[in-house]
Design a protein around this nucleic acid. Structure first.
Lengths: 185, 185
DNA sequence: TACAATTTTCAGAAATTTCTGAAAATTAAG
DNA sequence: CTTAATTTTCAGAAATTTCTGAAAATTGTA
């Protein structure tokens, strides 16, 4: 497998950005490669193209599977496992988005919920709990919103994202229109 | 400065989560402490409360300033610098969101834009460019949407996030209502 | 200016994460 | 069952990130 210099640059960049997106350099590179390369690729090809060890590829694929970002394929007459990116670019983005929501929000929500169960023992703690409650409310709302977005049909999501400044105008309409959506909360 | 066990747990958790949110453990802890502690805190107090070195505190504060998450204060008759979290929880969340958009999206958009300037030299490259274009279009749209959300008034943002399943209903309305927002391209 | 208080810097130490490669485990075919 | 192909594991090595603490720089006061 040879990568064009375009592909090379794309892959290397996704490696660099990897850590910001929640995976390490080689996992980022593997993901990028599978994303620009439409044909299924096996582990040896990945190792060769990215110049990393076979063991590292195995671990990276395991992680990409945990993220549900890759699909396993088999080619007739070949015992090797072949991989492709799972679905369209939009599917991939949605999956990364959901997975990050889970990893970045859920553990914190769980902890804060526990903290809020305790009765504050003094004025100091009562004050701290107030702030914790504020953080909790906000993260909970964010979490629900992220969930709502994940569940939207692609065409609705596209419509929403393209609204731009039309979004606030649309929000003004809410509840003011006969037969429109009813007031939430 | 003594932290209640509540506060302690909160701070430690934000330390653990720190890396997922874009900063390291101690920066996460410092941010958490400033968030639950309403009164201004100086560097020595941070070092003492978090049991880290003075130098580390200095570096962490520099980073929090780069993120625009802290505000500097001075107490009369005290030469030390005092810090608080910058603004309300909502302000902080908005700042983190904006800052992450910049760090996670912008560099990639810049690179992809450059890659798309090159004329593809062969069929292989043309195909790769198609995929790069798809990724670019999606990230660009995401970037703009994130910008739109950042600029929304808090009350509109709240309204939007609380819509839940009402969101798709509201989207159906778009363009169908006399005097409603005009169709965005 | 001189001086003490305070903050910043940064070289090296410590901690953590990632990677390699050989050995172990698994899988499929005969 | 045996064998060969393939994948996984994981101990230690390498790379990277974070942290410390002493020295240098800066700041405010007199």
């Amino acid at each position: 497998m040879k990568l064009s210099s375009q592909a090379q640059a794309f892959v290397l960049h996704f490696g660099e950005m990897g850590s910001r997106w929640g995976f390490n350099r080689t996992v980022g590179q593997m993901f990028a490669l599978l994303t620009i390369h439409p044909e299924p690729v096996n582990a040896d090809q990945l190792a060769q193209a990215l110049k990393i060890s076979r063991g590292n590829v195995s671990m990276g694929l395991k992680e990409l599977q945990a993220w549900r970002l890759v699909e396993l394929h088999h080619l007739p007459g070949d015992r090797k496992d072949y991989f492709t990116a799972a679905g369209s670019i939009w599917d991939l983005a949605r999956t990364v988005f959901e997975e990050r929501r889970k990893r970045e929000l859920d553990p914190t929500l769980t902890l804060l919920r526990q903290l809020l169960l305790n009765e504050p023992q003094d004025e100091q703690e009562a004050e701290a709990q107030e702030r914790i409650q504020e953080v909790y409310d906000l993260l909970e709302l964010l979490d629900q919103f992220a969930n709502t977005l994940s569940r939207l049909q692609q065409k609705d999501l596209l419509k929403l994202m393209k609204l731009g400044s039309g979004l606030s105008k649309l929000l003004e309409l809410k509840g003011k229109v006969k037969g429109g959506p009813s007031k939430a909360k």
